[in-house]
Design a protein around this nucleic acid. Structure first.
Lengths: 199, 199
DNA sequence: GTCTATAATAGGATAGAC
DNA sequence: GTCTATCCTATTATAGAC
């Protein structure tokens, strides 16, 4: 049994890891109870609506995490390169170098309630907005920046899927590199961009 | 209840859709029974080892599908452009224009047995091999072709995840376009490549 | 707020008739 | 090969003591 918990935040943190690793259907109350060190009844004390509400809380936490780690970081008053490096460092930590799953990806295909689904959508929107902001700064048109951001987030999600299936972290690492290299991009120097890709 | 079934192939086809839409844990025997029109006992007649074996059969089917639709098509004796167009057309059909899930992605993060996991891995390897073959033909070095293929498959998987969460099929469509444009690529004309990206 | 105990139900799996 | 009936366990959820 894990160490005792103090706050609801810590409880949610533990629930987070279970939903991330097992998905919604794969996470049983027994699993959630074990991970938190709380009995089922105690969990129901915090989350009267049960598992569904626990997933909502976890997704709200994910939304907040993205809000600060991506969207917030992207808008921070620091040089572009610094912000990008911070975001990449955070992502490498969250996803354990590409070996951990993403709770958003895990729950995206589960049958969850409207509230949870809304958090999920918002999380991805914030994520995309943050990356879009960075792409915008290197001179991409709004449309191109939006596409770049969507595609980059998809790249990352797919990299985690591929890793789960094959154990290969290459795609994850290249996704990180692609973001780092964004700082070297410039809409007026597309050749440089191609050269970077040829790396 | 769906129409009567004739062959085991058709049964597996029906099971396929359930695992694809609900994942391993999300697919109950009741669901699988309903989708096939067979009682639970009948399913056990075909698959004595139960749900696990059904998932194995579905993943074997997926492996065969990828083998012919991607790896086979990539190696067919036809012009590159034709092969690529066929692959894209097949993928657009399989994934319903980006709105359907991928059974491989769905099962990648589930706790499945060794046999199923092996099929999953093989499917992705074949998929990557097929795309790598195409990239090789436009003059990419083996290393670059391999990376391109891995990243492209990740892109597609992530596009489906993003669609599931947000309903946006843009990433899927751009992944298809990226493959179609591969035919216009050439290792000696990297500028053209960049121009295409700027589209 | 946490526990033990207990429902009530759903899930996976099997027996045996036809 | 398919069905009905049944079993057993896990799962979700609640009641009520402390």
């Amino acid at each position: 049994m894990p160490a005792a918990l103090a706050s609801k935040e810590e409880i949610i943190e533990r629930l987070f890891t279970v939903f991330r690793d097992s998905g919604f259907d794969g996470a049983s109350l027994a699993d959630l109870s074990r991970a938190t060190g709380l009995g089922k009844s105690s969990l129901y004390h915090y989350f009267p609506h049960g598992k569904e509400q626990m997933a909502e809380a976890v997704l709200s936490r994910a939304e907040a995490l993205i809000g600060e780690a991506i969207l917030g970081a992207a808008n921070a008053p620091e040089p572009l390169k610094v912000r990008i490096r911070k975001i990449v460092a955070t992502l490498e930590q969250i996803y354990a170098g590409g070996r951990a799953s993403c709770v958003l990806g895990q729950l995206a295909t589960s049958e969850i309630g409207a509230a949870a689904r809304q958090s999920l959508r918002q999380s991805f929107e914030h994520w995309i907005d943050g990356i879009m902001k960075l792409a915008d700064e290197v001179g991409m048109s709004p449309a191109r920046a939006r596409n770049f951001a969507e595609d980059w987030v998809a790249q990352l999600q797919g990299a985690l899927t591929l890793q789960a299936a094959t154990g290969n972290v290459g795609p994850f690492q290249r996704a990180m590199k692609a973001l780092l290299h964004l700082a070297n991009e410039d809409a007026g120097r597309r050749k440089t961009s191609a050269a970077v890709e040829s790396r």
